[in-house]
């Protein structure tokens, strides 16, 4: 029940985000959205994911979005009607396809679903002996699928270097120009 309530809140926030044009409010609502998402993860037993989403989605992303608004502007202009009509059609079609796809899915929380029978049981049953850590998520993350995590680390490395390359100032840049830009 808690999950449904929280997801319902998320849906409300999502729709509000689509409609509100004050970007600042949108970013704040986005923060709540992530925080709620994190709470839902925790309630769905994904404590590690909830942890990360809270720190990243609600924390870092929000702060970065605020930083961007500070450097740009915080008011959105109106979108032309025609464009939103096309988008609505595209979205409804995609959503309908997805809903169609759900019809044959294993039901929510079903312990007999294939997902719980092929690969995952081994992690739960053997990781205690093979890796020796109580936290199975850490075992899988760092050992069984450690290579994914290496890739993930490189992704964040890429992002940091990329932000430097896009936004970073060179120290050889004359100072005067910057001062003028700031005063102006």
């Amino acid at each position: 029940m808690i999950i449904l309530a929280l997801m319902g809140f998320m849906a409300v926030i999502g729709i509000a985000m689509a409609r509100i044009r004050d970007l600042f409010a949108v970013v704040i609502l986005g923060g709540i959205f992530s925080l709620l998402g994190a709470a839902v993860y925790v309630i769905l037993d994904a404590v590690d994911v909830g942890f990360t989403e809270a720190a990243v989605g609600a924390g870092i992303s929000t702060v970065l979005l605020l930083g961007t608004l500070a450097l740009t502007t915080s008011e959105e202009k109106v979108t032309p009607e025609s464009r939103s009509l096309v988008s609505i059609v595209a979205v409804i079609v995609t959503g309908a396809v997805l809903v169609y796809g759900t019809l044959d899915m294993p039901r929510y929380g079903d312990p007999t679903a294939p997902i719980n029978h092929h690969v995952a049981p081994r992690y739960l049953e053997k990781s205690g002996d093979e890796v020796g850590l109580p936290n199975v998520v850490t075992s899988v993350l760092a050992s069984y699928r450690g290579y994914d995590t290496l890739g993930e680390t490189f992704v964040i490395f890429t992002a940091a270097v990329g932000v430097l390359a896009i936004l970073g100032r060179s120290r050889r840049q004359p100072k005067r120009k910057r001062m003028k830009a700031r005063k102006g």
């Binding site: 509100i20 004050d22 008011e75």
Partner: peptide, 12 residues
């Protein structure tokens, strides 16, 4: 300065 004049939602 930042009060949301645009809070009234647009019919999008």
């Amino acid at each position: 300065p930042n009060s949301n004049k645009g809070a009234a939602s647009s019919k999008t």
